[in-house]
Design a binder for these strands. Structure first.
Lengths: 224, 224
DNA sequence: CTGTGTTGGATACTTCGAGTATCCAGCTAC
DNA sequence: GTAGCTGGATACTCGAAGTATCCAACACAG
């Protein structure tokens, strides 16, 4: 199909498609002449993925390019998930801002990983990100006790198990990588929304239990 | 203290402090003369919160203003959490983009909430956000089965319980609201990072189990 | 008392990301 | 054969988030 049809079918303006081509997010069509190229279904699919990443995932063009690059090179479950996981930024975390002199937070992360018996390389950007985040929490006087952190980590483990369930049974590498992107970029907001709703529900229950006072007394904390 | 000292103590440039004053993020100092104002410790604290929200939370100035406004008006656990929860955007979700004709996703959310017996008002922005996100997942051919969604929701419930544990025992309304902000804006990335690390760990284990093949066979899915 | 230097306030400017719009020459399809 | 796309390049717009400049009013050290 021509670019105009691609535009019509995906709802993306022609100028934007050209922009994505320029930015290397979308592979060029098969040129049939000096001023004509043919686009296929894979271009439409890629455009939909780009839209999902930038709108739902909230990614910048540069981040999207990195993720798509990882998708293109990935093969196999571990390759796809790993590449995408590393390329996909965690909102609100800038790993590059981790200085080296963060002894306390760094040790905290190392210890946590040891306690959990998680097998992750110390070079993972997520380790650096976690170190940065914990450091910031400490600076804000809101740091987690190791036990609290471990409790969250156990829940995160359960969530990750669910995540991976969704990846099995997909054979096509490209589909797999794209599914990985969706799981990471789009499902994270879903979980966050569920968390917020659960918070709302629990606050509501506690208020109902406590009557008009609105306070949460210790003996009611476990009733939910 | 004068603005220059406030700048020195927080590391925020004077020009930026003026910018935040202009934008209504920071209350004006107590004017001691036409060209002189006195700033207190609360200004420094507020500046630190602003920095945390914009950098770690990744919030825009406008969103930060909303959150701070909610913080200033909140009192009590439910007020603080509610106001902040509503004001704090979920990265990657634009609730205003939910059209009205989303029968399938809307019903899905309603049904989920009923199943979970969560008490949340249908007017909550998170309900709209969740509807939008599920709709997008469906469009991407990656929608959750109701049972999967419920499984995630149960985990979210556990996480929310941990979240609220951190809010009890704080009496000062302002501290409480600020803690709510930190829990929502800063801890969400922490959990996301833990989730990513857990994914890494599990992929690694599965690969180890499966040998060089790298594939995940059905009979190994449950071994982790 | 005087002049150096800071302050608040206003306004203008810069930078960056993310598109849009315009232009142009070549080609296609009616 | 010509009207109208097309690819490719370049220029423009727009908003967000600061920065920088300017100015009159004042503080306060000597």
């Amino acid at each position: 199909m021509k670019i105009s049809e691609l535009s019509r079918r995906t709802g993306v303006p022609v100028a934007s498609i050209k922009y994505f081509l320029r930015q290397g997010l979308l592979p060029a069509g098969r040129a049939t002449a000096a001023t004509l190229a043919e686009y296929g279904e894979e271009h439409a699919q890629r455009l939909r993925l780009i839209k999902a990443l930038t709108t739902l995932g909230g990614l910048s063009i540069a981040a999207t390019r990195d993720v798509l690059g990882a998708v293109d090179q990935a093969h196999g479950v571990e390759g796809a998930l790993g590449a995408v996981s590393y390329a996909l930024p965690v909102p609100g975390v800038r790993p590059e801002e981790v200085s080296e002199g963060d002894a306390t937070a760094g040790a905290e992360v190392t210890e946590l990983l040891a306690t959990l018996e998680w097998q992750v390389p110390g070079t993972s950007p997520h380790v650096k990100g976690l170190t940065a985040a914990l450091k910031e929490l400490r600076r804000l006087d809101a740091h987690y006790a190791p036990a609290e952190l471990a409790a969250y980590a156990r829940l995160a483990e359960s969530v990750a198990r669910l995540d991976l369930e969704r990846a099995v049974g997909i054979d096509d590498p490209v589909s797999l990588a794209e599914r990985a992107v969706v799981v990471l970029a789009v499902c994270a907001p879903v979980f966050e929304l569920l968390r917020r709703l659960a918070q709302e529900d629990q606050v509501r229950r506690r208020v109902a239990d406590a009557g008009d006072a609105g306070a949460v007394s210790p003996d009611q904390r476990r009733r939910v």
